[in-house]
Write a protein that binds this DNA or RNA. Structure first.
Length: 419
DNA sequence: TCTGGGGTCCTAGGACCC
DNA sequence: TCTGGGGTCCTAGGACCC
């Protein structure tokens, strides 16, 4: 059996942990730059606030309905997520952290000795007590079915108490008939359109489609999904591994049409990626840069550009990454266009201890020592060393007007109790 | 005025090899 | 007149996830 454990309205729930006055109150959490809604408490959902709603369009509704609005606080969410995952990992030797708020657990052979239903209830109680985060648990014979079971547990809390198990074929078919096709894990907008066109509206109908059709239209992934939904394990647990791509991308608060400002952004993104690469002890040999104009301003010239450059040797030196990223930027930059977003992505990632040596050239050994010294210093005193091209005046600070304290990761933000 | 960020997997087709 | 067959590797782009 598999379990999928999912935190309920995770970001919104995180905001409540150290601010219990918010229990029962509507909450929304906004994306970077306070752009759009990316998490909603049940109360906020009841007001009809959709996922992805632009904050400025809903500002009035937030005020009228006393909806509490937060900027996203990834430092807090990340730390609480780690606590949740650590506790979940004690329930089974095989676990897979699937996202910041979801975890698969595998219970091979457990059913002989444990009542999984009770185990699920135990998880919920412990998580509430130890971390303060509400969770839902779905059990089933495959990962895709565990996802379905989880959805049922979350949708009917009063009937399931947060735990639902699909353990018979009868329950499986009933659950699949209840699941709308667009809600199936792995079926997105495009597949939904195609499936509805051939009269497939729920997960059960999907499982009745011929393999050929699925393979042709949804690749091998679709076929695995079908088998998983039939109760035949086809989507395996995955080991945590090093990242294969690392990206750093941002929308700007206003648009820029000059190379100077874009160049500064790209340089800051490159430093950030260098740090991340070194942290996971990797090198990369592909660097991509992209620029996007403002999609919402149809009145302005549109330009989307993306360019990948191969490095001469695998590297994780910020200086080398930035040199190449700047080169790419200059090649795709188009004068006169107002840009709203830019990003740098590194890929072709290899472990640092496994670098292909070169006859001529290669990483400048001085860079290695320099990066080492910078990382160590920054770790000790908190990001004090920056590169000349990076913004030192912090004029790029994100719009975060409703940021909550980092209760668990900063001494300055620690919770105070008044006696 | 204002609209997020960071990932994964799969496939077709081109480049190249013998 | 007539021009093969069988591979591998790489990458862009499309689909998906949270």
């Amino acid at each position: 059996m598999y379990a999928l454990v999912d935190c309920n309205n995770f970001y919104a729930s995180c905001e409540r942990v150290f601010n219990p006055k918010l229990n029962g109150k509507p909450i929304v959490v906004l994306s970077n730059n306070d752009g759009c809604v990316i998490a909603r408490s049940n109360e906020a959902k009841a007001f009809g606030i959709p996922m992805g709603a632009p904050a400025f369009e809903y500002k009035k509704q937030f005020e009228e309905n006393n909806i509490h609005v937060f900027s996203s606080n990834y430092e807090l969410y990340g730390d609480l997520s780690n606590r949740v995952m650590k506790i979940l990992s004690t329930y089974s030797p095989v676990s897979e952290v699937y996202s910041i708020d979801e975890c698969f657990l595998k219970f091979d052979g457990f059913d002989t000795y444990f009542d999984l239903q009770n185990l699920g209830t135990d998880m919920i109680i412990k998580m509430q007590k130890w971390v303060g985060i509400p969770i839902s648990v779905g059990f089933a014979r495959s990962k895709a079915l565990a996802k379905v079971a989880n959805k049922i547990a979350k949708k009917f809390p009063e009937r399931t108490n947060g735990v639902y198990m699909i353990d018979t074929d009868e329950k499986r078919i009933k659950a699949l008939k209840w699941t709308k096709i667009e809600d199936v894990w792995g079926v997105g907008r495009q597949h939904t359109k195609r499936l509805k066109a051939i009269n497939v509206h729920n997960a059960y109908q999907f499982t009745q489609l011929p393999d050929d059709w699925i393979k042709h239209n949804m690749t091998i992934q679709g076929l695995r999904l079908k088998k998983d939904l039939l109760g035949i394990e086809s989507i395996q647990m995955e080991e945590v591994q090093d990242k294969k791509n690392i990206a750093c991308t941002r929308s700007f608060e206003k648009m820029y049409n000059d190379l100077d400002n874009l160049s500064e952004r790209v340089s800051t993104f490159s430093s950030n990626l260098g740090e991340k690469l070194r942290k996971q002890h990797s090198h990369c040999n592909l660097i991509s840069v992209f620029l996007l104009s403002n999609y919402f301003r149809k009145d302005l010239e549109q330009h989307r550009a993306f360019l990948t450059i191969k490095t001469d040797f695998p590297t994780n030196s910020t200086l080398e990454l930035n040199r190449i990223a700047q080169k790419a930027l200059k090649m795709i930059y188009k004068e006169g266009v107002y840009y709203k977003k830019a990003g740098v992505i590194v890929s072709g990632i290899t472990p640092a201890n496994n670098v292909q040596l070169k006859f001529f050239g290669g990483e400048n050994p001085k860079h290695i020592a320099l990066m080492n010294a910078i990382d160590k210093t920054n770790k000790k005193v908190g990001g004090k060393i920056k590169f000349g091209q990076n913004d030192l005046g912090r004029k790029w600070k994100m719009k975060q007007e409703k940021l909550s304290p980092c209760y668990t990761t900063r001494f300055s933000d620690i919770f105070t109790i008044k006696l």
